[in-house]
């Protein structure tokens, strides 16, 4: 696992200047938050997705849509280097984060994940109290004082619109919450470390329509502060929440019968759903395929 080994190497002092550059870039917003060029991801010999070129802008919601196996989650997991956790995964091409090559040897995946948070398909609260779930990230970052933690826990829960529901039972287990509450808890837990980007991998696919609507409202609330990328199977959801949409699909490989994902089209959501340039996009969004 050479990638994992380098990922776990802590940032050397020379990288501190890079960190400063990262924040400066975020403020000026001249470079996109993420820029991929010729991105391809392999699992062993299998090429899951290829030739992805896209620019993700800050303070917007970008949606990735497409049929199963089109590689949209795989691409998403490049942005916080979650693919590093899969020993056989290999990334080709470039992924830039505020102009910095994310897969540079000097970049520490752990530092990346402190800036790029992730919300998963199935709500995955820790089997700890609601409070300890929220305090987990801040504690990792060395915050120990109780009043500071209390403040972060409260403000994060408020921003995730969960505070009123749980303020009287912060010491109760997070596992006792409903699915929708658990997912908002996971979003709050993500917010608590003050990331720059929040990646959401089908965050509503395990939730009912009411819980889904609350998460969508929440996304609109927080998009001022965070860049959000959401993978979704639900086209209406993409149309409702996102500013820009990327449509992925699958293509049969020449070399094997396994399918590889490709990025078909990436544009303003409004345009993607009204007059897409590619006929495959049109077929998908009008429900004639996939």
């Amino acid at each position: 696992m050479p990638e994992l080994a380098s990922a776990l190497t802590p940032l050397r002092s020379s990288e501190n200047s890079r960190k400063v550059n990262m924040t400066e870039a975020a403020e000026t917003d001249q470079v996109p938050v993420f820029r991929t060029r010729g991105l391809a991801v392999y699992y062993g010999d299998f090429r899951a997705v290829r030739d992805v070129n896209l620019d993700v802008r800050g303070q917007e919601i970008t949606a990735f849509i497409g049929p199963s196996g089109c590689g949209k989650s795989t691409v998403l997991r490049c942005f916080d280097r979650m693919n590093d956790l899969i020993p056989s995964a290999r990334v080709e091409g470039s992924v830039e984060y505020h102009g910095i090559n994310l897969y540079d040897k000097a970049v520490d995946a752990v530092e990346v994940r402190r800036r790029v948070g992730m919300v998963f398909q199935k709500p995955n609260p820790f089997p700890k109290s609601i409070y300890d779930n929220l305090a987990f990230g801040p504690r990792l970052n060395g915050i120990k004082k109780k009043n500071e933690l209390d403040e972060i826990v409260e403000s994060s829960l408020k921003r995730a619109a969960l505070w009123d529901e749980v303020k009287d039972r912060l010491k109760a287990s997070a596992m006792g919450l409903s699915g929708g509450q658990q997912q908002r808890l996971c979003i709050a837990r993500c917010i608590a470390v003050e990331p720059d980007v929040i990646l959401m991998d089908e965050p509503c696919s395990a939730l009912d329509p009411i819980a889904t609507a609350r998460i969508e409202d929440l996304m609109q609330e927080i998009k001022r502060d965070f860049t959000i990328i959401i993978v979704t199977h639900n086209m209406q959801q993409a149309a409702r929440v996102s500013d820009r949409t990327a449509f992925f699909t699958t293509e049969v490989n020449n070399e094997s019968d396994r399918r590889t994902g490709v990025l078909v089209e990436f544009d303003l959501t409004q345009k993607m759903f009204s007059r897409p340039s590619d006929e495959r996009t049109e077929a998908y969004v009008t429900g004639r395929f996939g």
Binding site: V110, N124, P125, F126, P127, F136, G137, L140, V193
Partner: peptide, 27 residues
Amino acid sequence: VPMALREASYGLGARRVSTTFRVVFPA
């Protein structure tokens, strides 16, 4: 211990040692 808990921990910027002792071991 479900992989999802480890992913949650890594996703928050935890290293392997923190993940092991603060998430996996208690669970």
